[in-house]
Amino acid sequence: MARAEIAARTLRTDRWWLPPLTTFVGLLLISIYAAFRTFQGDYYWVDQYHYLTPMYSPCLTEECVPAASHFGQWFPALPGFLTPPVIIIPFLLGFRITCYYYRKAYYRAAWASPPACAVAEPHSKYTGETRFPLIAQNLHRYFFYAASILLLINIYDAVLAFGTGVGLGNIILLVNVALLGAYTLSCHSCRHIAGGRLKHFSKHPVRYWMWTQISKLNNRHMLLAWASLIFVCLTDLYVALVASGTISDLRFIN
C-alpha cells in the first residue's frame, strides 16, 4: 500500500523557516565573533582590575601575560597564528557541539534534518546518530566533565578579580559564571549522572532530590544554552573594551 499522494514538500502555512534561520544566523555570528577573539590573541586581561575573559581561561602557554596565568604556564609559546585559547577551545566547543540542545539546533538549522517539523528534509539517506562521525555525540558526558572543570576555573577567576575592588566588570564576570553554571548543571548528562540513571528513586533520596532540582533547570536548557553563550561573548567584549582602553571600567568600590 502506498502513502497518500501529496506532492508538496510541506503544507505548512506558518513561517516555519524563521526559527531555523534565526538559529543559523545567531550561531554563525557568535562563531565569527569567537573565532575573531580567539585568534586576536590580545586584550584578554585587564591588569589593573584582574579581569580575565572566560575565553582565555585558563591561560596556559608562555605567551600569556604572566599575571593572567592563574594556573601556571604548562605549555611553550604556540607557533604561528595559534593563540592560548586553542588549548581549551576544543573542550568548550566540544561541550556545546555535543550538547543535546545544540544538536537539535544545528541538525535543524544547518543540516535541515529536518528544517522544521513536518517539512521534508532534502537528504535522500538518513542514518541519524548510528554511525561515525555522529555516533561520537555519545561522548557528550566527557565534555561535560571537562567543561565543569573549566567552569570551576572561571569561578575562581571571577572571585579573584574581587581582590582589587568592585567594578561593573566584576558583576559581569559573576553573572557570566552564574549563567554558565546554570547551563552546565542543566545538562542532560548531568541529570542522568546525578540520578536519572537510577531505577529506584525511593532508595536514593538525596540523588532523587538532586535529580528533581536538575530536572527543573533542564526544562530551561535551551534558554540557558543561549543565555550563557551570548553572555560569554558580552563578557569577553567588555573585558576586551576595558583591556584595550576603549572604555573604562565603572568602579563601585575603589
Binding site: Y100, R103, K104, Y107, R108, S113, P114, C117, A118, Y126, T127, G128, E129, T130, L134, I135, H188, R191, H192, G196, R197, N218, N219
Partner: peptide
C-alpha cells in the same frame, strides 16, 4: 541511534509528553 533529538515528536504530542527530554535522551 536514528533519533537525532530534533524534538518534533514532543512538539506535536497532544498530551504534551516530554518524549525527547524524558524518554529518548535518558
Amino acid at each position: 541511534g536514528y533519533c537525532n533529538i530534533t524534538k518534533c515528536c514532543s512538539e506535536v504530542c497532544p498530551e504534551h509528553i516530554h518524549i525527547t527530554d524524558n524518554a529518548l535522551i535518558p
